[in-house]
Design a protein around this nucleic acid. Structure first.
Length: 900
RNA sequence: GGGCGAUUAACUCAGCGGCUAGAGUGCCUCCCCUACACGGAGGAAGUCGUGGGUUCGAAUCCCUCAUCGCCCACCA
């Protein structure tokens, strides 16, 4: 295979991905002697209506890194994909389409036909987001793709519902729920968003019964709800109203007699200190109403109009009713005044319309009994959040958990498996009950099934095991449950993560899953929850559709390639810290991809037929740079492995990046060039072996991060090395177990690097050409340095383009010379012509000043008895050595400056 | 109101008790040399948000304040 001069992702991605899928490498490897056991990740199922955004791109990159790493290590790695039916969102999309294309509302179609329409839409468009995940390189086992509304999931949903029902954890009741008047459904507390906006506070006068002319003013932001008022509350200690408690007021416009009650919850300082009580349309009033047994009057219809309770205003939409009611009150002199007010309005996450609290019959799940084990799971360490701080968020919610409203007035979703007889006695059943069949308890005929469907989360909270076949005792369930890793966004810790944990503890029978490892509770659905960074735009705002500030990952993949997008995201996000992103940030990933591409091209160009397998032990080599790069490879391998094991993706990627660019490319490849001038030598042969070995391991380490690039290059390298298997799964993660991590060669190489940099420094500052041959005298006080430099003087000569090297313990600088000082090493360069030393002087002066302040700081520190006494002896010794070094360096600089 | 996070180079971020505080981008100078100009070499650039405290020692730990962001709660 010929590699072009630059990496062109488009040329490879589709083909590579196709080959991976065809190879079956995304499926978990079969159990066997060499297997490390199962390792499972369940994808957070994106909405079927979804489009891949940057958050998905980041999250799925993270999951793919983990699963590819585990797969290469030898685990039976399963990453199970799927989508969520997303009740409200999907129904809304199809409703809109229906209205636009056929001008029909869903009611015109009827339930069955409408749901069929949605399925049709799902079949056509429901895989779009999964295709986008493929573009990203996600190595999911597509053969196991699941959907939260498919048959198997329905069975799981029914089983879970009936079990909770049988335990008495499900109840139906009239409660104040959050009503979305646009979508005409209840939504849960977790699906509303409070938005601060400028509003008006209206002061309404309510006449006191039997005291002509006397009124009580109440302040409200929602005057239209006054028709539902059934009381007015004041604070018990409020002198202004004390005499009125127990008396009655006349509700204007309606004429209802409403009592004045005394309640602690009233804030005396706010408004007039008297608050109208509308139990049917306000959560706080609902509670006050309960306390004083006030009647509940519902005044709104499901689509947000005033109902018959609204008297003359019946039938008006809520906004219109407000204006009309205010006008009517004004006319009667009962609108005292209006004030500006900043306050919070609840908006529906879905429709963005104002939520109306409304009393309605809904199904609820009692959460307290389910929360217990989920709390215990993190306390006992079964479950761990990364970063750890999210534990508190999770716990706070669970400790104050409220019952979960699970019914939704939609058509798209799992229909509630409850049937009623003619007396409306409900029964929850695992199997459909035919109309007319006897009610299992009352024996009276069944007349109808509940019309409502379940909240989407009431199916997706079963995701970790329902996807594996539960409630059946399937092989997959036994093998792949519980999972090891979950990565998700912080905003669904309550909606999804916590509920999955509850579900695991509630529904999983330990006997149906694999034997517990080291005493872990196998019911807990995952052991690590990774909460990834939130991707913000360049101004630090959330990326959102309405702002239009999103960066489309697919567009970025088109431009920079999937590998670049993946690596850039990982390099930019650290420990789940929010990240500000602009499109040009992906450049770093692409540049790096190109660097690796070209480094591989160089290696390939120099490999020939005889490329010996070389040792992983640096001591097996006798050339310094070989010993050094093999050691550096081993250290990198150990660090990257450790970081990945600890889910520190950014650390792992940074480590690899630096190794490849700074060590492998900048130094080893440059040094290797010199050895290939005669490719028949032993030195060249060894270099070929080292290049092949180090590059192979490097590509393997890079694979989880940049799968396409590494696979293409691996394949190209494989041609030269008679190696056939794709990197995807047949190669094990290189082992760092018995690799040496240190050695004197690290020190020696550093000395050489120091020298070379010093020479380059002189050349750059004096405008001597980079390659003009120069004669250099190297003055090194340290015997070990002298030995290294003498021994490796040929290497130094080659890479620093020196014609001659003299190593000495001391020497004085002749007039026609330039000098560089690096640590305790001094490099004196003979000059044959006049050069401008001013720039060099300037830099040396700056270094001298900096050194001085360093010396002062260290001297202060070391003359401090307390430091020497209390600090770790190793640190004291280190500081002494450092001081000594800076002193020597500064002396050298000072002496040389004096002669310039 | 309660909680969490952030504040370090022009920009985006690392560093989280002991290096003369780092990286990438940008900037300046030089360089197409048998991988890569999407590159190489060198350089300039920081009172580590403010004010206190703990400590021999603080960018790092504690407290105060400020600014920005997020989450929870919800004075009608």
């Amino acid at each position: 295979m010929e590699l072009g001069k630059t990496f062109d992702p488009k040329q490879h991605e589709a083909a590579i991905y196709g080959a991976w899928e065809k190879s079956g490498g995304f499926a978990p490897r079969p159990p066997g002697a060499d297997s490390l056991g199962p390792f499972t990740i369940m994808i957070p199922p994106p909405n079927v209506t979804g489009v891949l955004h940057m958050g998905h791109a980041l999250n799925n990159t993270i999951q793919d890194i983990v699963i590819r790493h585990r797969r290469m290590q030898g685990y039976e790695a399963l990453w199970l994909p799927g989508t969520d039916h997303a009740g409200i969102a999907t129904q809304a999309v199809v409703e809109k389409k229906l209205l636009k294309e056929q001008g029909k509302k869903r009611e015109a179609l009827g339930r069955e036909a409408f749901v069929a329409e949605i399925w049709k839409w799902k079949e056509e468009h429901g895989t779009a987001i999964l295709e986008q995940l493929r573009r990203l390189g996600a190595s999911c086992d597509w053969s196991r793709t699941r959907f939260t509304l498919e048959a198997g999931m329905s069975e799981a949903v029914r089983e879970s519902f009936v079990r909770l029902w049988e335990k008495g954890l499900i109840y139906r009741g009239a409660r104040l729920v959050n009503w979305d008047c646009v979508l005409e459904t209840a939504v849960s507390d977790d699906e509303i968003e409070m938005v601060t906006r400028k509003d008006k506070l209206y002061f309404l006068r309510y006449p006191v019964e039997g005291q002509t002319g006397r009124t009580v003013s109440v302040a409200t932001t929602r005057p239209e709800t006054m028709v539902g008022d059934t009381g007015v509350a004041v604070h018990p200690q409020d002198e202004r109203y004390r005499d009125l408690v127990g008396k009655f007021l006349t509700l204007p416009l309606i004429g209802r007699r409403i009592p004045v009650v005394a309640d602690e919850s009233v804030e005396r300082k706010f408004g007039t200190g008297a608050v109208k009580i509308t139990p049917g349309h306000d959560p706080a009033d609902y509670e006050r109403g309960q306390r004083f047994h006030l009647p509940i009057v519902s005044v709104l219809t499901k689509d947000g109009k005033l109902n018959e309770e609204g008297g003359p205003f019946a039938g008006m939409p809520r906004e219109k009713a407000r204006t009309a009611i205010l006008a009517a009150l004004e006319e009667q002199g009962l609108l005292e005044k209006t004030e500006e007010l900043e306050h919070n309005v609840p908006l529906s996450d879905r429709s963005k319309s104002i939520i109306e609290p409304m009393v309605s019959e809904q199904w609820f799940v009692k959460m307290a009994p389910l929360a217990g084990p989920a709390i215990e799971a993190v306390r006992s360490g079964q479950l761990r959040f990364v970063p750890e701080r999210w534990t508190k968020v999770y716990l706070d919610w669970l400790l104050n958990v409220r019952d979960w409203c699970i019914s939704r007035q939609l058509w798209w979703g799992h229909r509630i498996p409850v049937w009623y007889d003619e007396d409306s006695v409900p029964f929850a059943s695992r199997t459909d009950l035919a109309i007319g069949s006897p009610h299992p308890i009352t024996k009276k005929p069944i007349v109808r099934q509940d019309e409502d469907v379940l909240d989407t989360w009431a199916s997706s909270y079963l995701w970790p095991f329902a996807t594996l076949g539960w409630p059946a005792k399937s092989e997959d369930l036994a093998r792949f449950y519980p999972t090891q890793f979950l990565s998700t966004a912080r905003d669904i810790i309550y909606l999804w993560v916590a509920r999955m944990v509850m579900a695991g503890y509630e529904f999983i029978d330990p006997k149906t899953v694999q034997a517990a490892k080291n005493g872990a509770d196998v019911r807990c659905p995952f052991s690590v929850v990774n909460i990834h960074a939130t991707v913000l735009d360049a101004q630090g705002r959330r990326m959102s559709k309405s702002l239009g500030n999103g960066i489309d990952p697919i567009e970025m993949i088109e431009k920079y390639g999937a590998d670049a997008v993946r690596l850039s995201l990982i390099l930019l996000t650290n420990e789940g810290q929010d990240v500000k992103l602009s499109p040009d940030r992906f450049d770093q990933g692409y540049r790096f991809a190109n660097k690796v591409w070209n480094a591989t091209r160089f290696v390939l160009a120099n490999l020939d037929g005889g490329n010996p397998e070389v040792s992983r032990d640096p001591a097996a080599f006798d050339t310094l740079e070989d010993q050094w790069i093999v050691t550096r490879r081993n250290v990198t391998l150990a660090n990257v492995s450790k970081a990945l094991d600890e889910y520190r993706f950014n650390d792992a990627a940074s480590e690899l990046y630096a190794f490849i660019w700074n060590d492998f490319c900048d130094w080893y490849l440059e040094l290797a060039k010199g050895r290939f001038t005669d490719s028949a030598t032993d030195s060249a042969r060894t270099a070929r072996g080292v290049l092949a070995s180090v590059l192979s391991d490097t590509l393997a380490m890079l694979h989880p991060f940049m799968p396409f690039l590494s696979e293409v290059l691996w394949e190209a390298l494989g041609e030269k090395l008679a190696r056939k298997q794709p990197l995807l799964m047949n190669t094990r993660w290189p082992s760092s177990k018995d690799a040496a991590l240190g050695g004197s060669w690290m020190q020696s190489m550093e000395t050489i690097q120091t020298l070379v940099r010093a020479v380059r420094n002189v050349r750059a500052l004096t405008m001597l050409g980079e390659r003009t041959p120069l004669a250099a005298t190297i003055v090194a006080k340290d015997g070990a340095d002298r030995q290294v430099l003498t021994q490796h003087q040929n290497t130094c000569k080659t890479i620093a383009f020196l014609s001659e090297i003299t190593v000495a313990e001391s020497a004085s600088r002749p007039p026609a010379s330039a000098v560089a000082v690096a640590g305790t090493i001094e490099v004196i360069v003979q000059l044959t012509s006049d050069v401008d030393l001013s720039k060099l002087k300037e830099v040396l002066e700056k270094r001298l000043a900096k050194g001085k302040s360093g010396i002062e700081a260290l001297e202060r520190k070391l003359s401090n008895a307390a430091f020497v006494e209390k600090a770790d002896p190793g640190i004291v010794a280190g500081e002494r050595a450092r001081l000594q070094e800076i002193r020597v360096e500064n002396e050298l600089i000072a002496r040389n400056l004096a002669g310039m």
